[in-house]
Amino acid sequence: MKALLIGESREGKLLEHSYELLGFASRLGAGTAMFLVGSEAALPSYGGTVYLADAAKCGEYNPDLHKRLVLAAVEREKPDYVVFMHSSYGWDLAPRVAVALKAAQVTEVVAVVEGGFERPCCSQKMRHKVNPAGAVAVLTLQVGAFPGEMGAGTPQLQPIDAEGDGRVVFQGYEPAVRKGVDLTKAEVIVSAGRGIGKKENLPVIAELARALRGELGASRPVVDSGWLDAGSQVGTTGQTVSPKLYVACGISGAIQHLAGMKKSGFVVAINKDKEAPIGEVADVLVVADVMQFVPALTAKLAK
């Protein structure tokens, strides 16, 4: 069994999560080759074949061209699996490759289980076991689901090249806006989620943060709705935090939120839904209405 692993580079650097592809291949017991649109200056620590296209020429984001490059590598390598990370690069490119190969795609694999691949569904609340039909399958892996594994040695390079069609033109990166509080240094963070119901309820959460001498954070919908500014967002597209105490108020626990806070020392979640996925990472799950529980907690702490 052979897997072609699609590595990623951004702004000239190899992305660390590319090593999770190797961890997955070990778990699957597959032989490997890698594919990368990058540069010789930023190769993975890996002893096998790397199909390398030059990012300076091909661009770091040029999906029609990258698809052709992957197809060229597939043609030479004849893998059973073409494996991407479920990242902004992977979820964009994988379906293009799958359709071109007339192959099945399994999205966001979290485990290899008896008789198939396990993937989350229903906003991480449930699991779904699926099996690709056909000779070759495309997979994307949930970031963090498999351990990163570095290989030894230096890769044998196989240069590849292709032409794009100019339908999609990358114009550059826009850096992340960082303003407001630096949550990464906070010892206590109390975060508000959509479960607080409305903007007018925010002061109640802010008061708990004050009572615990902590900072106020938020999940994405709170920021998207304009209740707090972007600097407060915790998660993959916000800040990654590791306070001693993290209190999640009315936050369901989507993977993108968990990725930003799961390194916290102690996690308390307040949620009316006992099955909310936040329960998976919470040291204490308080099953309650957040707008009743939080004021009661703040009042008691003030005593």
Binding site: A104, V106, M126, E280, V281, A296
Partner: peptide, 26 residues
């Protein structure tokens, strides 16, 4: 192109404490 095999709850990993019931007590 993909075959659906089964649908189930995730295996519980978190051994966290669950507090239910009376608010003051929680």
């Amino acid at each position: 192109r993909t075959l659906l095999e089964s649908f189930y709850s995730p295996a519980k990993k978190g051994g966290g404490i669950v507090l239910e019931g009376d608010l003051a007590d929680q």
